[in-house]
Computed example of a mutant assay.
Amino acid sequence: MAIALDRLDETDIKILRLLQQNARLTLKEIGAQVNLSSTPVYERFRRLEREGYIKAYVTVLDEEKLNMGFTVYCSVTLKQQNKANAKEFADVIMGLQEVTECYNISGRF
């Protein structure tokens, strides 16, 4: 179901931008930035939720402080597939600080 953006006015868009930057802003803080009192901001806020413009509230964690990165799975095919090339590739990949694990799942080598 597509939601028509033309149903949003400039104030709605400002509210959404503010919430994207900081979803913990109070209605009063948002109102001060869009020149509305808390009640009309609340009504707009609830309408934006009800109509699906706001899908979820999330917390963005600091992965550095948590010593966590992200996981990437990729498939690699070597131009020449032999044990020497596979070993060289694995050595290079495992030499990268960002790579913590590397698996050979093809069973060819």
Results as ranks from 00 to 15, higher is better:
Lys14Phe: 03
Lys14Asp: 10
Ile15Lys: 05
Ile15Arg: 09
Arg17Pro: 00
Leu18Pro: 03
Leu18Lys: 04
Leu18Arg: 00
Leu19Asp: 07
Leu19Asn: 07
Leu19Lys: 11
Leu19Ser: 12
Gln20His: 04
Gln20Asn: 06
Gln20Ile: 05
Gln20Lys: 04
Gln20Ser: 10
Gln21Trp: 02
Gln21Ser: 15
Asn22Pro: 00
Asn22Arg: 09
Asn22Lys: 04
Asn22Cys: 08
Arg24Gly: 13
Leu25Ser: 12
Leu27Ala: 10
Lys28Cys: 09
Lys28Phe: 05
Lys28Gln: 09
Lys28Ser: 14
Glu29Tyr: 06
Glu29Leu: 03
Gly31Cys: 10
Gly31Phe: 05
Gly31Gln: 01
Gly31Glu: 06
Ala32Val: 03
Ala32Trp: 01
Gln33Tyr: 01
Gln33Ala: 14
Gln33Val: 00
Val34Arg: 10
Val34Met: 07
Val34Gly: 12
Val34Trp: 05
Val34Cys: 08
Asn35Phe: 04
Asn35Trp: 00
Asn35His: 06
Leu36Asp: 03
Leu36Ser: 08
Ser37Arg: 11
Ser37Asn: 03
Ser37Phe: 03
Ser38Gly: 02
Ser38Ala: 15
Ser38Cys: 02
Thr39Gly: 04
Thr39Tyr: 03
Pro40Asn: 13
Val41Trp: 03
Val41Gln: 02
Val41Asp: 00
Tyr42Gly: 12
Tyr42Pro: 01
Tyr42Glu: 13
Tyr42Ala: 15
Arg44Gly: 11
Arg46Tyr: 08
Arg46Ala: 09
Arg46Lys: 14
Arg46Asn: 07
Arg47Ser: 13
Arg47Glu: 05
Leu48Gly: 06
Leu48Ile: 05
Glu49Met: 12
Glu49Asn: 06
Arg50Lys: 15
Tyr53Arg: 07
